[in-house]
C-alpha cells in the first residue's frame, strides 16, 4: 500500500475528485521511466477528468548519477509553478541532464534563474526528494517505474493498451 497517501507535498496533475489516482515512482535517468512517460501522457489525454496522476521521485543514485539532481530541478521548478513543464522537458532529454543542461531547461521555461539556482541548492528540496524515495521503499517500490493505482501497487503490464484497459475497468466500478 502507498504510504503516505497523496498529500499537499505531492506534485499532482488532474482533478482532486478524480475516480482514479495513478502514482508513479520514477527516476529521470531510467530508460524504462522515459518510455513510461510517453505512455502516461497519452493515457492522461484519453482519461481527462477522471484520472489524477502523481509523480514521486525514486532516483537510483548509484546507477544514475544525474537522477537525483534532475529530481531536485523539478522541485525547484515546482516552486515557480512549473513542475510539470520541467518534468516533461527532462524526460524528453534523458541523455542530457548535467547541471548546465538543467539550467538551460529552466531558462527555456522562462523561470527566474536566480531563484532557480538558489532553490537547486536548498537542503529542503533535497530532503523532499529523499523523503519521496523513503516513502517508495516503505510502500514496496522495488525498481522503476513502480505504479500504484488508488493506493495499491500495480505489478501488471504497463504498456499503453493494457494499462488503459485496467484503469478504465477500475473507473467503471
Amino acid at each position: 500500500m502507498l504510504k503516505p497517501s497523496i498529500n499537499n507535498r505531492d506534485n499532482i496533475s488532474g482533478p482532486d475528485n478524480a475516480i482514479i489516482t495513478l502514482v508513479e515512482y520514477g527516476d529521470y535517468e531510467c530508460p524504462h521511466c522515459g518510455r513510461a512517460h510517453g505512455i502516461i501522457k497519452n493515457i492522461q489525454v484519453q482519461m481527462e477528468g477522471i484520472l489524477r496522476f502523481v509523480f514521486r521521485n525514486f532516483p537510483l543514485q548509484e546507477s544514475h548519477p544525474n537522477a537525483f539532481m534532475a529530481a531536485v530541478a523539478t522541485e525547484a521548478a515546482a516552486r515557480q509553478k512549473a513542475f510539470w513543464p520541467m518534468h516533461n522537458v527532462i524526460f524528453e532529454n534523458q541523455e542530457r541532464l548535467s547541471h548546465d543542461d538543467l539550467e538551460a531547461y529552466a531558462g527555456k521555461l522562462k523561470l527566474n534563474l536566480k531563484t532557480f539556482d538558489i532553490d537547486m541548492k536548498d537542503e529542503a528540496l533535497k530532503e523532499k526528494v529523499e523523503a519521496d524515495f523513503e516513502s517508495g521503499v516503505m510502500s514496496g517500490v522495488n525498481g522503476t517505474p513502480t505504479f500504484f493505482i488508488n493506493g495499491t501497487r500495480y505489478d501488471g503490464n504497463w504498456e499503453e493498451i493494457e494499462l488503459l484497459k485496467v484503469l478504465n475497468k477500475m473507473a467503471q466500478k
Binding site: H32, F58, L60, E62, N142, T144
Partner: peptide, 16 residues
C-alpha cells in the same frame, strides 16, 4: 537485466 534490480535497490537503501 533490469534497472533497479534487487542488489542495486539494496545499494540505495543501505542508509536505511
Amino acid at each position: 537485466p533490469v534497472c533497479g534490480d534487487q542488489m542495486s535497490l539494496y545499494n540505495e537503501t543501505l542508509k536505511l
